[in-house]
Structures are given as structure tokens and as C-alpha cells.
């Protein structure tokens, strides 16, 4: 516990400059970040999620998400043996404060499903925006231009996953940005940073060394509602057929 040593380290010019660069700047000004070199997505591992709600709280802290609205949330499924397609689902306050204790059931199975914007490559929400206020960036992230959005909520209606909402005080559409302000500076998203079990992994499909490529070869990975043909890039490992 040597505070002066830490202070000294922070003041080492190289570290300080690097951190200043992390705190401010735009991707186009950053020499290291090229829009064309990335294609972002997210891997969500249902077999690892413990429903602690860390991701939901971290997202709220990082992105100033208003109470009662969610850029990410966690659902708890109970799929009984009697009906494999109609599960019982809860998500109290988006799972922000965790879940009530579940008792073992003989004829059913519990599991958690973290949800977020799927950053679809063929996104229905950007398709319907009348003015081009929501769009897919060249690096594959669906963003909202808060200074341009009319707040018509057409995109909210068009999203099959319920990921969008109208911000109660800004009156514009809002949703997950895949922590675009972080990933363009070499950091991971707030939810991935704070997931204690590694159930969420930021994925860059254009990076040949990204572990996702090996993971996809050996795991049973699906996207939500594939019949919607949205080109979803939230990849789920261990996704049960009852998840909607």
C-alpha cells in the first residue's frame, strides 16, 4: 500500500498521456482506431450467467440510463418439462438487483438470459427511421444521433427484441451503444468489464485473433429470433429453444 509510488506511476508521462487519450477524443481523430477494421458484436454465455445484475448496474452507471429503462437487462427463465416453448420468465427491475432465490424443481430448469441490443447487421430499427437518426456505423454498431432524433418511436416498434425506449427526459430514442465511447479506445464495454463470470465477451469479427472464431467452431451458438432475419450480432452460447 504505497500511495506515493502509485502517484508517481500515474505521473509517468507515457501512462498519463495514454490515460488522457482514453478519457477524451473521437475515433476519427485517433490514429489507432479505423472504422473499417472492426465489426463488433457480443458473445453472451448462458451457461455462465449467474443473474447477479452487475451488467445492468454497470450499464446504468456508465451510460446514465434512466431508472425503469434498460439498455441491457437479465431475464430468468423457468422452462418446465411440460411445455418446452412457453417458459415462465421474470426480470424484476431488469434484474438490476439480482433475482429472488429459486428452489430446485424436478420437472423444470432455470437459467438466466442477459439481453441487450443485438446490433443487427440488417436492423429493422434503422430501416424504419424516417430521418436517418439511427444508423449502423461502418464498424457494425447501431447508434442513435440524439441531436437528430424526432422521438417518433417508430424504431421502438420495429425492434423485435424490445431493446429500445424513448428517453423520458431527452425525448429521443435510446438504447445500447455497445459502449462505443469505450470500444473505440481499446476498452471493453461496461457490462463485459463488470461481468464477474465472463458470461459477456465483446467480439470483433474482423479481428482474426479474436477468441470468438475458435469459440464458434466448438460451441452451439445461436442468435435470438433468427426467423426475423435481422443479422443479429449478439451471439448466445447455450441458448434454449424457449428463449424469446
Amino acid at each position: 500500500m504505497n500511495l506515493s509510488r502509485r502517484q508517481f506511476l500515474v505521473l509517468v508521462p507515457a501512462t498519463a498521456v495514454a490515460w488522457q487519450y482514453v478519457l477524451a477524443g473521437t475515433p476519427r481523430d485517433a490514429p489507432n482506431y479505423q472504422l473499417a477494421d472492426h465489426w463488433w458484436g457480443m458473445l453472451l454465455d448462458i451457461t455462465k450467467c449467474i443473474g447477479c445484475g452487475n451488467c445492468v448496474r454497470a450499464c446504468q452507471a456508465e451510460n446514465d440510463v434512466p431508472d425503469g429503462y434498460f439498455r441491457t437487462w437479465v431475464e430468468r427463465y423457468l422452462r418446465t418439462d411440460w411445455n418446452l416453448t412457453t417458459p415462465e420468465v421474470i426480470s424484476p427491475d431488469g434484474g438490476k438487483e439480482g433475482f429472488p432465490t429459486a428452489e430446485e424443481v424436478k420437472d423444470g430448469m432455470y437459467f438466466f438470459v442477459p439481453k441487450m441490443c443485438n446490433h443487427c447487421a440488417d436492423s429493422p430499427c434503422t430501416q424504419v427511421c424516417p430521418v436517418g437518426a439511427t444508423f449502423i456505423t461502418p464498424d457494425g454498431v447501431v447508434l442513435i444521433d440524439q441531436t437528430y432524433c424526432l422521438g417518433c418511436a417508430y424504431c421502438v416498434q420495429a425492434c423485435p427484441y424490445g431493446c429500445r425506449y424513448i428517453h423520458p427526459t431527452r425525448h429521443v430514442a435510446d438504447k445500447c451503444t455497445l459502449c462505443y465511447h469505450r470500444i473505440t479506445k481499446g476498452l471493453t464495454t461496461a457490462c463485459c468489464e463488470n461481468c464477474p463470470t465472463g458470461a459477456r465477451q465483446l467480439v470483433d469479427l474482423k479481428n482474426p485473433n479474436d477468441p470468438i472464431h475458435a469459440f464458434l467452431k466448438t460451441h452451439d451458438v445461436h442468435v435470438l429470433k433468427p426467423e426475423m432475419a435481422t443479422g443479429a450480432k449478439a451471439f448466445y452460447n447455450g441458448l434454449d429453444g424457449s428463449v424469446r
Binding site: Y69, S91, D93, K115, A153, V156, Q157, G162, Y165, I166
Partner: peptide, 12 residues
């Protein structure tokens, strides 16, 4: 039953 948490309010 269950609504996605962002669906509870009607937007239109």
C-alpha cells in the same frame, strides 16, 4: 405475464 422491461410503457 412477462413483458420486456422497455415494453411496459406504450410509445404510440
Amino acid at each position: 405475464g412477462y413483458m420486456y422491461p422497455n415494453e411496459i410503457n406504450l410509445y404510440w
